[in-house]
């Protein structure tokens, strides 16, 4: 009943703080309370944003960031789901992997970055490895917890119908755990987005993170905002895309609040 007008109100209320921030930002810049070298006007940032997004050089940087992001995230999804399922399926794997994960999960993976640089070099490989190291844990944990929580009677129904152990794992346990697995993947996706940017800031010769550091070194304040806004929008876009895929995959599942 209240759906239409309700949604409109929600959107309006939600736009409020963002408009407020941009407004205050505009006033600060326009009145000269903040010098442009410290805080450029929002209009200047927006103009630069549009200019950069149509510049092939900038898009190339964005492309290398995306390439590392997807490579790392892809490996993390495959490894995380495979290990997570194995933890539930095999008592032996579970007993080995669970304490390892318990020890490694709270370790700040970014600290491993120097080790990746030393063993894999300064190129893409070390950055992708860092993304994998960071993104794999939420996916692995969500998969292990999700598959362990599957109602055993679902698996029994499949086994009684003649499904082998592996068949049952792949056609029943994993799909039944899909809501949890996808939640883990979404967390992993945002983490990938963040980590790839940070790795590029620490050492890189290309990518969005590198652009931010390069702008900071030459005190080009406007150019510092552009990659930050790009990565934020990229994150929102990827998240929205992921949610669309998720809705399709979970068509039969009862609604969950997320």
């Amino acid at each position: 009943m209240r759906a239409r007008s309700g949604i409109a109100t929600v959107v309006l209320i939600g736009a409020l703080p963002i408009a407020l921030i941009v407004g205050v930002w505009h006033v600060l810049a326009a009145t000269g309370m903040a010098p442009p070298s410290l805080l450029p006007a929002p209009s200047a940032v927006a103009a630069r944003l549009v200019q950069q997004w149509s510049s092939p050089a900038y898009l190339e940087h964005a492309a290398s960031t995306l390439l590392r992001l997807f490579a790392g995230f892809g490996i993390a999804v495959i490894a995380g789901i495979a290990i997570g399922v194995a933890v539930t399926a095999s008592r032996w794997v579970g007993a080995t992997v669970t304490p390892l994960v318990r020890v490694l999960a709270p370790v700040p993976k970014i600290a491993l970055y120097p080790a990746f640089i030393l063993t894999l070099g300064f190129g893409d490989a070390s950055k992708i490895a860092l993304v994998v190291a960071d993104a794999v844990f939420p996916i692995l944990l969500a998969t292990a917890q999700g598959t362990a929580a599957v109602e055993p009677k679902l698996a029994w129904s499949a086994q009684a119908a003649g499904a082998s152990r592996w068949r049952c794992l792949l056609t029943v346990v994993l799909p039944a755990a899909l809501p949890s697995v996808l939640t883990g993947c979404r967390i992993g996706l945002v983490i990938s987005c963040i980590v790839v940017f940070l790795a590029e800031m620490i050492t890189s010769t290309d990518g969005l993170g590198h652009l931010l550091v390069r702008a900071a070194r030459s005190f080009q304040t406007v150019d510092m905002f552009v990659p930050l806004i790009t990565i934020s929008l990229l994150g929102l876009l990827l998240n929205a895309g992921f949610n669309a895929v998720r809705r399709r995959l979970l068509a039969g599942f009862p609604e969950t609040t997320e």
């Binding site: 009677k153 029994w156 009684a160 003649g162 039944a176």
Partner: peptide, 27 residues
């Protein structure tokens, strides 16, 4: 378990990601 003995549970235990037809087709 064996297909010779078919269970029916109080909780239904249907596969939520499959349609009615998909559930009946599974076995």
């Amino acid at each position: 378990p064996s297909p010779d003995r078919g269970p029916v549970f109080q909780e239904f235990a249907l596969f939520p990601w499959k349609t009615v037809l998909g559930n009946v087709m599974y076995g």
